[in-house]
Nucleic acid binder design. Structure first.
Lengths: 114, 114
DNA sequence: TCCACTATTCGAAATATATCGAAATATGGA
DNA sequence: TCCATATTTCGATATATTTCGAATAGTGGA
């Protein structure tokens, strides 16, 4: 995963409605939710929500897929995990970090390069 | 950890120079680095870097501490881990997510409330 | 084909963020 | 006290983002 992608992903999540939408989708699981359901759940006009969902999709954090008249959005867990791995990469330059410093990279810092 | 804090943290990281600075500090370990070293390493004017470091500090991602004439910045690993835990919280609403969907919350999704 | 439904794109205004030089603040030594 | 060092705050400008109604574009049934 490269910096530019990470920046876009973080920027996408750094917004009220988008963070809420993303979490909603994370909680919804692999089945995802229709765009309309998301905007209704979050109480936002459809056009605004569409804008935000597009940003999340563009950042690679969610996937979109048409299903009849609806468009179903779902969280992309790989992207999410890659993002987190990027932040802890080379933590403490390999020095003892699981101990005192509390760095504790979540066990599987290994990441399939984007 | 509450939404507003998370947004500020994500927003703080969602910027070229700040992401670079944060990662530099993550790699520098608990000892941290002086503000001047950071701005020199990243090739940014001191005043610009100061602005960015302030944002990271304000977001709780890094700590600052005066040491004689320098101000030493260091990554706050707890904040970083809390941030990541927030994103995966209630993943898949507790349904089987470590298996097919690839959600795999990093084992310790448990979080000490900020 | 025509209509209702679901969702996105466009446009324009309000708001927020990034940038960096110059001036200001703190620290420590002569 | 006076000067050099290390950083931050201020101010002004350029750029980017958020917002939402209205217009536009696909989908499916009668």
């Amino acid at each position: 995963m490269e910096a530019a992608v990470v920046i876009r992903a973080l920027g996408a999540l750094a917004q009220d409605h988008r963070l809420a939408a993303f979490r909603l989708l994370v909680q919804a699981g692999p089945e995802g939710m229709a765009a309309g359901s998301v905007s209704e759940t979050l109480g936002l006009p459809a056009s605004s929500m569409s804008f935000h969902l597009a940003q999340l999709a563009n950042a690679g954090l969610i996937t979109q897929q048409r299903q009849s008249r609806s468009i179903i959005y779902a969280a992309d867990y790989d992207a999410m995990n890659g993002l987190m791995a990027y932040l802890t990469e080379n933590c403490c330059s390999g020095a003892a970090c699981t101990t005192e410093s509390g760095c504790t990279p979540p066990a599987k810092t290994e990441r399939t390069a984007a």
